[in-house]
Amino acid sequence: MVDTKQRHLPRPTPETLHFWDGTRSGELRLQTCDDCGAVYFPPRPFCPECSNRNVSVFAASGRATLYSYVISNIPAPGLEPPFSVAVVTLEEGPRLMTNIVGCDQTPEALTLDMPLEVTFEAQSDEITLPFFKPAG
């Protein structure tokens, strides 16, 4: 489904590199605060809840539920309409943007709160994107 030549790909920064290293090795990496225990996303080397710099990286379960989405009929680089643009809630709490794959891109197939699991697709040597599919 993915045209790797055209999709707009992330350019990792020093603060996000661990996340993109993780997806390449099949892990969805989150961060947690060593002081207050907050789990947060997107990556940054400090806790947005308490501003503490002592934080740790860990691998998330990859389980999530569908929070909200649209089904775009507008072409986007590397994406053939119709495609879902979705926000999922990870089991660990944080939310992230993704596409729901492995099912029809219809309101009937995409029901809010449906259980999902992460799946990884390499886009280039450097970048592997996390997508979500119906848990099965």
Partner: peptide, 26 residues
């Protein structure tokens, strides 16, 4: 691409208002 939206939202097609502003409504 290096901006946070460029890394974590735009790759999924959330790149224009009709696929960004609209996502919360369902």
């Amino acid at each position: 691409g290096g901006k946070l939206a460029g890394q974590f939202e735009v790759p999924y097609g959330a790149s224009l208002p009709p696929t960004m502003f609209t996502i919360p409504v369902l």
